[in-house]
Amino acid sequence: MKKVRYKMGKLGKHLFMKKYSRISDLLPDTMAATRSNLNHMLRTYNALYLKPDEGTGGRGIYKISRTENGFVLRGGTTSRNYATADALYDSLQQLINRDKYIVQQGIEMLKHNGRSFDIRVMVQKNRSGQLVTTGIIGRLGRANKIVTNYHSGGTPLPISKLLQSHLSGADLANYIRKIETLGREASSILAISYTNKRAFGVDIAIDTKMKPWILEINTGPDMSIFNALKDKTMYKRILRYAKF
């Protein structure tokens, strides 16, 4: 059987992974950002994210939240209010059509000191071609910013520090192992399509009920974020695996 290779944006990756039942319920609802899809998602969820289908580094991302008087659109540190979903879409239509956007279910993310954070799991192939989790790091968002990305001002921190106000002892250690395993599992599914990729960066959010959500998998992950940690053990391991 011939191996299949795809070049997919966020939506393509989502639709591919959604076919696999072992992770499908951990994927936030994601659709192309058409007017009808946006209206449907606004009726279904209290918060949404608009993301460029092929964007990286947290650039061009917007958050939409429902308010008593309509909707608020936030991008960077600015916000605008709209009375209706149509008015909201009309203001975004040119941007959406130009850059091909997706709309994604907003996750009520776990917080540390009142600030949202997510997790990047680095998964790489070893000499034998087997996928191994080589790093895990937390990204703490800046106050009043809607993204946690390192290059958008997010602070890289050990995941144990971000989770310690929610879990402790064996529960904390077991949960971190669970996230590491989830990152490897999700990467193994995407690797069915991306057969030539040797590294995957899995972005995982944890909601207020401690459920992990696979937000996105980057097939060209930035490794420099791990160098921001004081302990360089993970970064050195990642660099070593990058040579295989």
Rank of each mutant, 00 (worst) to 15 (best):
K2Y: 11
K2L: 14
R5K: 12
K7C: 06
M8I: 06
G12V: 03
K13N: 11
K13T: 10
F16M: 09
K18I: 09
K18R: 15
S24M: 12
D25G: 14
T30H: 12
M31K: 15
T34Y: 14
L38M: 14
T44G: 06
Y49V: 04
K51E: 04
P52N: 04
P52G: 04
D53M: 03
D53C: 04
E54T: 07
T56E: 08
I61W: 03
I64Y: 02
S65F: 05
R66W: 01
R66C: 02
E68N: 08
N69V: 03
G70S: 05
G75S: 15
G76Q: 11
T78P: 07
S79E: 14
Y82H: 12
A83H: 10
D86P: 05
D86N: 15
D86T: 12
L88P: 07
D90I: 01
S91K: 07
S91Y: 08
S91P: 03
L92N: 09
Q93L: 03
N97R: 15
I102A: 08
Q104S: 11
N113S: 07
G114A: 08
G114K: 08
I119C: 14
V121C: 13
V121E: 07
V121G: 10
M122F: 06
M122I: 08
N126I: 06
R127F: 12
R127C: 07
Q130K: 13
T133Q: 15
T134N: 04
I137Y: 08
G141M: 07
N144P: 06
K145E: 11
K145W: 09
K145H: 14
I146F: 10
V147I: 10
G154E: 05
T155W: 03
P156E: 06
L157Y: 13
L157M: 15
I159K: 14
L162S: 08
Q164C: 06
G169L: 08
L172C: 09
N174A: 15
I176D: 14
R177M: 14
K178D: 12
L182I: 15
I192T: 02
T195L: 00
T195P: 00
N196M: 07
K197S: 02
A199M: 02
A199L: 00
F200V: 00
F200K: 00
A205H: 05
A205D: 05
I206M: 02
D207S: 06
M210Y: 03
M210P: 00
K211T: 13
P212R: 05
W213D: 10
I214D: 02
I214W: 02
I217H: 05
I217Q: 04
N218E: 02
T219H: 00
D222C: 00
M223L: 01
I225T: 03
F226Q: 01
F226T: 00
K232E: 04
T233M: 06
M234A: 08
Y235G: 01
R237K: 13
R237I: 11
I238W: 00
Y241L: 01
K243I: 00
